[in-house]
Amino acid sequence: MATVKFKYKGEEKEVDISKIKKVWRVGKMISFTWDEGGGKTGRGAVSEKDAPKELLQMLEKQ
């Protein structure tokens, strides 16, 4: 499965696309949330040019 790689608060992170729940556009950035388990929700953002095609497809479906 595809993953999204991004930096959050200076830390490199990687999230499996299948865990992503919500995707939206903020200017030229793609923001998203995912389920971290245990009732926690993670947040992240990646530039439109660095976003994997699967993430962009999720954005178009909404």
Rank of each mutant, 00 (worst) to 15 (best):
K49V: 09
T41H: 14
G10L: 03
M1F: 12
D35T: 07
T41F: 14
S31K: 15
L55F: 05
V15K: 02
D50W: 15
E12P: 07
L55R: 00
S31F: 06
V46G: 01
V46P: 00
R43G: 11
M29E: 15
K13E: 03
K53V: 12
K21C: 12
M1W: 14
T33V: 11
G27F: 01
R25P: 08
Q62R: 00
E14F: 03
W24F: 05
E11C: 14
K5E: 02
G10I: 01
K21G: 12
A45D: 15
D16M: 08
W34S: 01
V26K: 13
S31R: 07
K21R: 11
P52H: 06
K49H: 02
V23W: 02
W34P: 00
S31Y: 08
A45C: 12
I17S: 03
G38H: 12
I17P: 02
S18M: 13
K19G: 14
K13H: 13
I20T: 02
R43L: 08
K19T: 06
V23N: 01
Q57K: 10
G37L: 15
Y8E: 04
A2P: 14
R43T: 14
S31M: 05
E60K: 03
E14I: 10
G38S: 10
E48Y: 08
L55P: 00
W24E: 06
I17Y: 01
K28T: 11
Y8M: 03
K40C: 15
K49L: 08
G44F: 14
K61H: 13
G39F: 09
D16R: 06
K9P: 01
T41Q: 06
G39V: 13
S31I: 08
D35P: 15
W34D: 00
T33L: 10
K7T: 08
Q62S: 06
G27P: 08
G37D: 14
P52Q: 04
R43P: 14
D35Y: 07
A45L: 07
V26H: 12
K61V: 13
Q62I: 10
K21F: 14
E12M: 12
K61S: 14
E36Q: 02
K21N: 15
P52R: 02
K40D: 15
E12L: 09
V46W: 01
S18D: 13
G44P: 00
G42H: 05
K21E: 14
M1T: 09
W24L: 04
G39L: 15
E36K: 06
E54D: 06
G42D: 09
G42W: 09
K19N: 06
V26E: 11
V15I: 14
E60A: 02
G38I: 10
S18F: 12
Y8S: 06
E12K: 13
P52I: 10
V46R: 02
F32H: 00
Q62M: 09
G38N: 06
L59H: 03
V4P: 00
K49T: 12
S18Y: 07
V15L: 03
A45Y: 04
D16F: 10
R25G: 13
K5T: 05
S18R: 13
M29K: 07
M1I: 10
G10T: 02
E60T: 04
M29I: 04
G27Y: 10
T33C: 11
S47M: 13
L55C: 02
K53G: 11
G10N: 08
I30M: 04
G10S: 03
E36R: 03
D16A: 11
G27T: 11
V23L: 12
K9H: 06
S31T: 07
I17T: 09
T3G: 05
V15M: 08
A51V: 07
A51F: 01
L59M: 09
G27C: 13
Q62L: 09
K19E: 15
V46N: 03
G38A: 12
R43A: 07
E48N: 08
G44R: 01
K28H: 05
G37S: 13
K7C: 15
K7I: 11
V4L: 04
V23Y: 05
L59W: 03
V4M: 01
A51Q: 04
T33G: 06
F6K: 00
K13C: 10
Q62H: 09
E54Y: 06
K49C: 15
E11Q: 05
R25D: 11
T3Q: 05
K40E: 11
D16V: 09
E11G: 09
W34M: 02
K7D: 14
I20V: 11
D35I: 12
R25L: 11
A51G: 04
W34V: 02
L56R: 05
E60V: 08
K28G: 15
M1L: 09
K61G: 14
M29D: 15
K7M: 13
K61T: 12
G10A: 03
T3R: 06
E60C: 15
K61E: 11
K22R: 12
R25W: 05
L55H: 00
Y8P: 01
E11R: 09
V26R: 10
E12Y: 07
P52Y: 02
R25H: 09
K53P: 08
M58E: 07
V15F: 01
W24D: 12
G39Q: 14
F6P: 00
R25Y: 08
M29Y: 05
M1P: 06
L56D: 04
E14L: 05
E54L: 06
I30Y: 03
E11L: 13
V23C: 05
S47L: 05
D16K: 12
S18E: 07
L59V: 08
G38D: 10
K5G: 01
M29P: 03
K28V: 08
K21H: 14
F32R: 00
G44A: 13
E36T: 11
V4Y: 01
S47D: 13
K53Y: 08
Y8N: 03
K21D: 09
K19S: 09
L59A: 13
W24S: 02
L56K: 07
A45W: 05
V15N: 00
E14H: 06
K53R: 06
Y8C: 12
W34Q: 00
L55Y: 01
L56T: 10
E48M: 07
K9N: 11
T3C: 04
I20C: 08
Q62W: 04
S18I: 10
G37M: 08
E60S: 07
K9V: 02
G37R: 09
V26G: 13
G42E: 15
I17F: 02
T33K: 08
K13F: 10
V46T: 08
T3F: 10
L55K: 00
L59Y: 08
T3V: 09
L55E: 00
F6Q: 01
V46I: 10
L55G: 00
E54I: 10
T41L: 15
T33A: 07
K22W: 06
G38F: 08
K22T: 12
G37H: 10
K61W: 04
M1R: 10
